[in-house]
Amino acid sequence: MSFSKNKQGHREIDASELVRYFGDECDFSRLEKPKGKSETNRIGGVGGEDLRAQLKAIEEERERERRQFQDQLDYLRKILDDNREEHKSSLRLLEDHSNKANGWKEAIAQMKKELTSQHEQEINQLKRALRSERDKGFWKRVFR
């Protein structure tokens, strides 16, 4: 598109260029802005209604985003709570295994006691047999 500069040095595009580029979408029937009045001074007019509609749309979008973030936050909190419960149950299982490990230690200690008592009984039997052999006379030992 071509343009020309006005007296103030601003670029101006000829209306025919806009029609050539945009086609029927160009609508030149709109009112031009009154000179000397800004959009903020015209809030009560047509421009103000557009601004209010845009503002309302933006507010609705922000509210929707807030709800979405709150839902995500609630979901993440639920996952965190679930993970905490899982962690606690894992710790309980570990504690249970440590108690069972003590049970194994007790069982091993009991078996050790039983084996020790069996060995002591065997040693006592051998000692008695040795004493009875000593108590026999020399000739009895030789001529059994």
Rank of each mutant, 00 (worst) to 15 (best):
N6L: 02
K7S: 09
H10M: 10
R11V: 05
R11S: 09
E12D: 06
E12K: 08
I13F: 09
D14H: 10
A15M: 05
E17Q: 10
R20K: 14
Y21G: 00
F22N: 03
E25V: 03
D27K: 05
D27T: 00
S29M: 01
S29Y: 01
E32V: 01
E32L: 06
K33Y: 09
P34D: 04
G36N: 08
K37P: 02
G47T: 05
E49K: 05
R52C: 05
R52M: 08
A53Y: 09
A57P: 00
E59K: 15
E60S: 14
E63R: 15
E65W: 05
R67Y: 03
Q68T: 11
D71G: 07
Q72V: 04
Y75N: 10
L76H: 06
L76Q: 12
L76S: 07
K78D: 15
E86L: 14
S89T: 14
S90G: 06
L94D: 05
D96S: 12
A101R: 07
N102F: 04
A107K: 13
Q110K: 14
S117N: 14
Q118R: 13
H119K: 13
H119L: 13
E120M: 04
I123W: 07
I123V: 10
N124T: 13
Q125P: 00
R128Y: 01
S132D: 15
D135F: 03
F138N: 03
W139H: 06
W139I: 03
